[in-house]
C-alpha cells in the first residue's frame, strides 16, 4: 500500500468555478480578485458571498499588482518532491493595495533581505508543471 494520496500535487486543483476563474486569470497574466458590487469590498480567497454585507453579487476586478510583504517563511526542508530542486525558497503573504492578502512566491530578492512591509509587485511565473502562478518582485518605483 502506498500513501501517495497525501503528497500534494503542486499545480492548483480548483474545487469549483471560483477557483478555476482565479487561476484562469493568472494564466492570462491577470491578477484579479473578487469585489462586491453592492458594498465595494474586495475579497480573497474566492467566496460565494460578501462577508461584510451579505450580497451574492460580485465581479472580478484587476488588482494594481502592488503590495507589501505581510509575512513569510523560508523553507529549508521541502515536503513535496516538486520543490526538492529549488530549496531554500520563500513563501510569502503579500498584502495588496486593495486590502486583500495573497500567498505567493518570491523572485529577484535574496532570501535574507526579506522584511515586513517591503514594497513588491506581481510577476507571473510558469512552472514546469504548467501552472502559472503569481510571484512577487521588489517594486522599482
Amino acid at each position: 500500500m502506498t500513501n501517495e494520496s497525501f503528497i500534494p500535487n503542486p499545480p492548483p486543483r480548483p474545487n469549483h468555478y471560483l477557483d478555476e476563474q482565479f487561476w484562469e486569470n493568472c494564466r492570462n497574466h491577470v491578477l484579479a480578485f473578487q469585489c462586491c458590487t453592492s458594498c465595494e469590498t474586495w475579497r480573497h480567497i474566492p467566496r460565494f458571498m460578501c462577508a461584510k454585507c451579505g450580497s451574492p453579487d460580485w465581479e472580478w476586478r484587476q488588482s494594481s499588482g502592488k503590495g507589501i510583504i505581510y509575512s513569510w517563511t523560508v523553507v529549508h526542508k521541502p515536503m513535496t518532491p516538486h520543490f526538492e530542486s529549488i530549496f531554500p525558497y520563500a513563501a510569502l503573504v503579500v498584502e495588496m493595495e486593495e486590502g486583500v492578502r495573497i500567498t505567493a512566491g518570491l523572485q529577484d530578492l535574496d532570501l535574507d533581505k526579506i522584511e515586513m512591509d517591503l514594497p513588491v509587485e506581481v510577476v507571473f511565473e510558469t512552472l514546469e508543471n504548467g501552472a502559472v502562478l503569481p510571484f512577487f518582485v521588489p517594486r522599482k518605483d
Partner: peptide, 19 residues
C-alpha cells in the same frame, strides 16, 4: 490548501504556521 498554499510549496503546517 490545494489551491492557494500547496502550489507555493506550503504543504505542511510547519510552513503555514510560520507565517
Amino acid at each position: 490548501l490545494t489551491n492557494y498554499y500547496f502550489p507555493y510549496g506550503c504543504a505542511s503546517p510547519v510552513q503555514m504556521y510560520a507565517w
